[in-house]
Design a protein around this nucleic acid. Structure first.
Length: 524
DNA sequence: CGGAATTAATG
DNA sequence: CATTCTCCTGGG
């Protein structure tokens, strides 16, 4: 008896299976510098020992000198150094495994959000425990899928971030090391040199002077102190659309918007075991570049060591790493029914799950405009204030503050006030709970929870089939189809449920994106 | 820069 | 799970 276990015995030194995208697709993409492939594969050049993004402005190397990798870490593991022109460090993250709920994916997510990085870094064992697996299995997964260890992966991400800071900011090198989460400059220099074959100061000196002066000028424009960076994304990204979404829901003092450059800023507060990191971030459109500019200010400048985490946090809020090409392809079942796709529509998240929950509760049964009026009252009456960069900034109320809020000034049903208080109390007592657990709170139902998961946890797979707007949109699509085909579909509530179930499966794991599409569609 | 202490990788 | 090996950091 022979067992078929080809998949089990993947050799650790993966020979020519570095890239899951076919070579000829990669070749075409790199020759046309196709931004849609940015971050989905990397080009290693054997002769120079350098690896690039698909959009690299350098003249393309000959095909026979080229090796393709599906992740930048694999290229780095092969002994190649990141290109100084296209800067693979700031490429959008996109990986074949994205959107799966595997332990590996969750581990990568946590590491990308800095859990192994910085002064109070978690140990590998802690991380493994959090995922419910052994540390042994975790390292095994990394070796199988990425060809490297968790620690090396984390280090590589730190290093790439440091490189980005050296390129894009004027920060002193010690600050760069701290901001990237290194605890000693000694180690920073060592790792940097081993991977990039340059010292940090050499890299900074090698910058073209025109570029750095341009950057500092644009920083002056905003009059902004703090740290300015550029965030790359892979098109399509309809930022003005997201900007508008935030605009109608904005809380004055906590969020601010500027129509001219589609700037959006807000306060944030992130808690890392006991330590609260507060500050503001502001993003704005960079025309024609597939980038947003980002300015971060910490309330306490000592917290610069958390910059890496903050940048990841912003990327998540603005959904910069979504792979829209894959996501939009999954809409096919509905586009074939005549749904128009608003391309580049991503999931605008909130600063915390709790905030998403409050927004959801205050949005029950009322219009968006009314909901944001209520939200403004809540924030201004119960939230903290602090001065950051000569400006008074409002923070979204903490769970404790909402729990204790009198809410007498609110014109809404008592039941909803109690739901809001109850939510605050519940989250205050179970700060790490997921929205699913909120079902215990009276007045919080499945819709509220689903909304919180979508906007608060960036869960990509929330298809709100029961939402009234969604229901109407789908019914309208059926009617449209009937009209075109001359048929008349019988449509009971049960039929709808079945259809919704089917759609939900077809679009999985991207249900949230379809939800937003259908909401958007309704506005037209 | 070197080396002691600690943590991660591996069979 | 025990051994080897790499990483990390405080001090010279």
């Amino acid at each position: 008896m022979k067992t078929q276990n080809d998949n089990e015995s993947i050799p650790l030194n993966q020979g020519n299976i570095n890239c899951h995208i076919p070579d000829d697709v990669c070749r075409q993409a790199r020759l046309s510098r196709d931004a849609r492939f940015d971050g989905r594969f990397f080009i290693g050049v054997k002769t120079t020992g350098i690896y690039c993004r698909s959009i690299c402005p350098a003249s393309p190397p000959k095909e026979h000198n080229v090796v393709y990798f599906d992740s930048s870490i694999k290229a780095a593991e092969a002994g190649l150094r990141p290109c100084l022109r296209c800067r693979p460090d700031s490429a959008p993250q996109s990986n074949a495994w994205k959107g799966t709920s595997s332990s590996l994916q969750r581990a990568i997510n946590l590491i990308d959000h800095g859990c192994l990085t910085g002064e109070n870094a978690e140990s590998l064992t802690d991380l493994a425990t959090r995922l419910g697996i052994s540390s042994r299995y975790l390292t095994k997964l990394f070796n199988q899928q990425l060809g490297t260890s968790p620690k090396k992966y984390a280090l590589y991400r730190q290093l790439m971030f440091a490189k980005q800071l050296l390129h894009q900011t004027q920060l002193p090198i010690t600050d760069v090391a701290m901001a990237a989460g290194f605890n000693s400059i000694r180690r920073f220099n060592e790792v940097f040199k081993s991977q990039l074959q340059l010292t940090p100061s050499q890299l900074r000196r090698s910058l073209s002077p025109s570029k750095s002066s341009k950057l500092s000028e644009s920083n002056k424009d905003k009059g902004a102190q703090g740290i300015n960076l550029l965030l790359d994304y892979r098109p399509p990204y309809d930022w003005p659309q997201l900007w508008a979404f935030y605009q109608v829901r904005a809380v004055e003092g906590m969020e601010w918007l500027n129509e001219d450059n589609h700037a959006y800023g807000r306060s944030f507060s992130i808690v890392f075991d006991e330590l609260e990191i507060r500050g503001t971030f502001e993003v704005a459109e960079v025309k024609g570049k597939n980038q947003l500019s980002l300015a971060v200010q910490f309330e306490d400048e000592q917290h610069i060591g958390y910059l890496f985490q903050v940048v990841q946090y912003v990327r998540k809020i603005l959904d910069l790493d979504a792979d829209m090409e894959v996501i939009e392809a999954s809409f096919e079942p509905l586009t074939s029914m005549g749904m128009k796709v608003a391309s580049g529509l991503r999931i605008p998240a909130t600063a915390s799950v709790f905030e998403a929950g409050c927004r959801a509760v205050l949005g029950q049964q009322v219009s968006v405009v009314q909901a944001s009026k209520l939200l403004n009252v809540l924030a201004v009456n119960y939230g903290d204030k602090a001065v950051i960069g000569h400006r008074e900034i409002l923070f979204f109320p903490k769970p404790q503050q909402v729990a204790a809020a009198g809410l007498d000034e609110f014109k809404m049903p008592g039941a909803r006030k109690r739901a809001l208080n109850g939510l605050g109390e519940f989250v205050a007592h179970n700060p790490l709970s997921s929205p699913e657990a909120w079902i215990e709170v009276k007045g919080i139902g499945p819709w509220t929870i689903a909304y919180a998961k979508m906007r608060g946890e960036s869960d990509p797979n929330i298809f709100l089939a029961g939402d009234l707007v969604i229901k109407n949109r789908i019914k309208a699509l059926i009617a449209k189809q009937d009209l075109a085909l001359g048929t008349a579909t019988e449509f009971t509530a049960k039929d709808y449920q079945q259809l919704a179930e089917k759609i939900s499966q077809q679009v999985s794991p991207w249900g949230s994106y379809l939800t937003f599409q259908l909401w958007k569609n309704d506005e037209n």
